[in-house]
Design a binder for these strands. Structure first.
Length: 392
RNA sequence: GGCGCUAUCGUCUAGGGGUUAGGACGGAAGAUUCUCAAUCUUCAAACCCGGGUUCGAUUCCCGGUAGCGCUACCA
């Protein structure tokens, strides 16, 4: 490129350039390189280099607008007035990253360069390099920036930003894929939202990607995640969930108060089956898999005193019928044969509840909230039928 | 400062010279199940501003404003 005058040696020092830039800014001009060394006679330049005067190599940006095509943005044009002659080889002899990638991409015959639109502004320099080298310019697609809820560029302080973060939170890959596809893209018609990977491969097109920046919406991601959790075979969810429970083993589970479960599990030939049923029961109600241990706490950790003292439950406990309901309920449970032997069946439980209902006159929330508090420690949760009956 | 990109409900978006401006998330209300969740139904919610062009602009053009980005012998 030096021989063809497509590049030239630049002897400007760092200070020169800095001063130049400062002046340009002060005078409200575009702070680009003046092109001072462009005019140096090539033979003269070679002599100076031979005499070991430090120099860098600059690409000569042509004296005409630089145009290129972008799949997302359409025709893009930059005036050469605003594009500096970029240094491609530093005085240290080290090439500059931004131009090395061009060589690399060209050598690998990259057909499409798809990247964030923060690269849009240096694209003209790269295009100029392709042209100087006489290589075909690839297709570009500059995707819009993803912003946080505060409309600032997504960063660590917005929470999860890497794929690994999302995986660790228990966001299924297909949910993330689906969500990301929907950020900045919509199918023709714009009404379909659920897309599997194969469907995306078929439907997705860069041409339909919006150029405008998009705010990342966790809630919508969770919606998709809930969808895919429900769609998944239970075994898969169980397997994926297991790691979230591991830190808990040796914790609450081994506490003395967990006697029931402990003996239960050691007696049972397959603890796993029991665990699986718990997961299957709770999985449909979480946004992410890492929330499952907390959801499961009503089964693993039960503390009646804490439940009665909890502010969350205070309102329910203050209701008019609550005392009547609880008095009858506890009485009946304590009297019940099956319950005493720890063999309470859903049918029997239901029968007891119905009796309480009839005797206390309470129904709906008034009936079930108090009972739930006593039984599970919380006034809401999965259906009783599906809960393993617990006698106390 | 210069240059660039962008601009439809709170959010993601469809649409496009004349539309009741469509869908989804979230929100609200209702139905329903023993509660919550789920589900179903309903509702509220938007074309940034100003000029043009036009019989008619949310749509096309220009300007403004705002947000973001790029302005290195960084990667």
């Amino acid at each position: 490129m030096l021989d063809e005058q497509k590049a030239y040696l630049c002897f400007c020092t760092e200070e020169d350039l800095q001063k130049e830039r400062a002046r340009a800014t002060a005078e409200h001009r575009q702070p680009i390189y003046s092109g001072k060394c462009r005019a140096i006679d090539p033979a003269e330049a070679q002599r100076r280099r031979a005499s070991s005067e430090p120099c860098a190599i600059r690409l000569r940006i042509p004296e005409r607008p630089i145009r290129f095509h972008d799949i997302v943005h359409g025709a893009v044009e930059f005036s050469n007035e605003v594009v500096s002659d970029p240094i491609i080889l530093r005085s240290s002899g080290m090439p500059v990253y931004n131009y090395v990638v061009v060589i690399d991409d060209a050598l690998m015959k990259i057909s499409h360069v798809i990247r964030g639109d923060d690269h849009l502004s240096n694209t003209p320099k790269q295009v100029a390099l392709y042209e100087a080298l006489g290589w075909p310019v690839p297709e570009f697609a500059h995707l819009s920036t993803i912003l946080g809820a505060d409309r600032e560029r997504l960063s660590k302080r917005h929470g999860a930003t890497s794929i690994a973060n999302f995986r660790d939170m228990g966001v299924l890959p297909e949910a993330l894929d689906n969500y990301l596809a929907l950020l900045g893209w919509a199918p023709t018609g714009g009404t379909r939202e659920i897309f599997s990977m194969p469907e995306l491969v078929k439907e997705f097109s860069l041409q339909r990607v919006t150029p405008s920046p998009a705010v990342f919406d966790m809630e919508k991601l969770y919606w998709l995640n809930r969808h895919y959790i429900k769609e998944s075979p239970p075994q898969r969810i169980q397997k994926l969930t297991l790691p979230y429970f591991l830190p808990l083993l040796g914790g609450p589970l081994s506490q003395p108060q967990q006697e029931t479960e402990k003996s239960d599990s050691s007696e049972s030939p397959d603890v796993y089956k029991w665990f699986a049923s718990v997961i299957q029961l709770l999985a449909p109600s979480v946004d992410r898999l890492d929330q499952l241990p907390e959801k499961a706490s009503l089964i693993f950790n039960y503390d009646a005193k804490a439940a009665l003292a909890s502010p969350d439950n205070a309102e329910v406990l203050g209701w008019q019928n609550t005392d009547a309901v609880l008095a009858r309920f506890t009485f009946k449970i304590l009297e019940d044969e099956l319950a005493r032997e720890g063999k309470l069946t859903p049918e029997q439980f239901k029968k007891i509840v119905n009796e309480v209902k009839a005797e206390s006159g309470a129904k709906g929330k008034e009936l079930f909230h108090p009972i739930r508090i006593v039984v599970t420690g919380s006034h809401s949760g999965p259906e009783f039928d599906k809960l393993k009956a617990r006698a106390k």
